[in-house]
Design a protein around this nucleic acid. Sequence first.
DNA 1: GTAGGCCCCTTTTTT
DNA 2: AGGGGCCTAC
Length: 769
Amino acid sequence: MQKTEKNSDSGLLSHLNEAQRAAVAFCDGPSLVIAGAGSGKTRVLTYKIAYLLEQGLPPYYILALTFTNKAAREMKSRIADLVGEKRARRLWMGTFHSIFARILRSEAEAIGFQSNFTIFDSSDSNNLVRLIIKEMELDDKQYRPGVVHGQISRAKNSLITPAMYAANTEIIQYDRMAKRPQLFEIYQRYQSRLRSGNSMDFDDLLMYTNILFRDHKEVLEKYRNQFQYILVDEYQDTNFAQHLIVKQLADAHHRVCVVGDDAQSIYSFRGANIDNILKFKSNFPGTQIFKLEQNYRSTRNIVNAANSLIKKNSEQIFKNVFSENEEGEKIEIRSAFSDFEEALIVSNKIARMRLEKYAGYNDFAILYRTNAQSRAFEEALRKNNIPYRIYGGLSFYQRKEIKDIISYFRLIVNPNDEEAFRRIINYPTRGIGAVTVAKITSTAQRHNVSLWQVVTAPLEYNLDVNTGTAKKLEGFYSLIQGFIDKNETMNAFELAQEIIKNSGIAKEAYDDMTPEGMSRAQNMQELLNAMNEFVETQQEQGEENIRLADFLSEVSLLTDQDTDNEADNERVTLMTVHSAKGLEFDHVFVVGLEEDLFPSAMAKSEIRGLEEERRLFYVAITRAKKSCTITYAKSRFRNGQTNPATPSRFLKDIDSSYIEGGENDFITRTAPADDFWGSMREQRLQNTMSNHTITPKRVVPVQRVASSTPLSKEAQELEVGHIIEHERFGRGVVTSIEMSGNDRRAFVEFESAGKKQLLLKFAKFSIVE
DNA sequence: GTAGGCCCCTTTTTT
DNA sequence: AGGGGCCTAC
């Protein structure tokens, strides 16, 4: 950022530019800070909090809501640098979900929950929806669990309860049109199932907070008084439920500051409503608006290119983002034949740039639209011996073996948790199958109790099972009850060890000597390590009895992004554009710029969707500090098939003057000017084999030859009969070599690409034999 | 009641 | 390519 951090107790404001200073110093009413990409948004938030503390506001009177746990942690530590660890620690700072989960736990009784409620993650939610659909004997093609849950989620984020949903003729009409007339009932059942299991899903954390505030004014009053100043980061990505929470809490004193950038709103699929930021001023009369327009992160070229892109969107708050940094390199757009070659090009460029620019691996990031794209890059990086770290995808806590163990924890802490019960009633196998579980379920429903309660007293509920099964159920009951008893005295780590040992999980894990089994065992060990660490750090901070519940509530809102170990940071970062929000890297590769991928096929039917995709691309480009490379492939392997792909429409949205070789159309501008012939061939090739699939059989790292250097060793030694591996055309045999002017030219018969002629001065290949 | 194999379907992004 | 659901054989 623009100035070096100084730990000074006077003149905090002197570290800021004029716009930032104004935003920080205004504390008497509602304010909206429109912060362009890289304009020091986090800096404003941290300094503002530090400033409030300096003014004498106690830290526990400040509520600061961030988008991710990681953002909260980072901000906290930066504030600690300014005002000291002690005060920083007492701030109420975290994500909406984690802060209000905490509040809901302490106010649980008011809304009819116990404070040990479980939090369902999305896969738990989907499972429950799937189960209900099955119970209602509905067609799960018509009612796809994911889609149904998505609809429920949207309803909750708009604070539409099941009752309101069923009463809303417009929605009912819509569902009927969509051939899902029973959706309201699924929602109803889903919600009451969660409640009877003393569980909440992610959306409930926000919805019940609103219900709590609505129905218990004294509670609302309490938190209104406590949170004397409220700050919200990434406001453009809040939904209605979040907006209303903020509004209610701030309504008495109006000391609220929200920060965001409408141009970076990328979460509408999750209910985020861009209107929250666009209409903030009318929601909070007297709002002061501050605009941060100077970008300190990126070169002028990158900022200008991004601006030219985002200009193509219609709805936005006017702002003029500019940079006073050096002009920097132009954006390079490169095409590849296939996704594999795309990965190869990127990994080669990383290897080269690392040497040329003395960059560390952690200065590089590869950003893609979908998680599935990571695979090709992983492979190419591994082959080039480039260390990398993937964020997202299957997070550690989503792995089956981990979720199974966590389900034990959940059932112990909250025995009414139906989802957890189902997961482990027969894991490891103990002879309690689907039939028995179905009986338990119907018995439970008949008596309106939880599955666990049936198991605690099968006779009382007339559970109809034979003696053998009854015995097995008894065994399961005493196993879990034993853990519940031990939970009274043991700390989280000790109990976890006990569970893994006594449940039979350990035996199963050790017996499995397959590589997958061993990695599962390893993951379990890692979970234990994490728990041990959790317990120890909590103890260091003076907490005494660290119970399973403490670990669980910590862990259920954790995502992969939050668990990064600082130790191995010399790595290239691979992540989706979504998860890159708020981060920055010296050198960024935005990959897969193809129609139906980026923009996603899902989004392009509507203008709104398309504009969101464009904002996403904007976010991707603005992550870059020094250089940005964009790639696309002409064929891509997706869903088990190789399909032809066309370049993304977004490429045309970037003003060509900011693009390397920008005067040419990007279709022909395949590689830097050194490869004119190559691009001609590619075009011909694409025309003649539009429906063919091109997948190199082997991907071999290819030595790159800079065009300015004299002939490479490879090129000098090349002879007729050699077999070569070409960066783009794959493997081929040299049929003849001739001189053309001052240059040698080789004729090569490629296995898949056919006959080609290569100018040896420029060709990128290696000799195989 | 369980295990193993086949077939289907999938994919956008995440707290 | 991969996971999950469903069916069949024991």
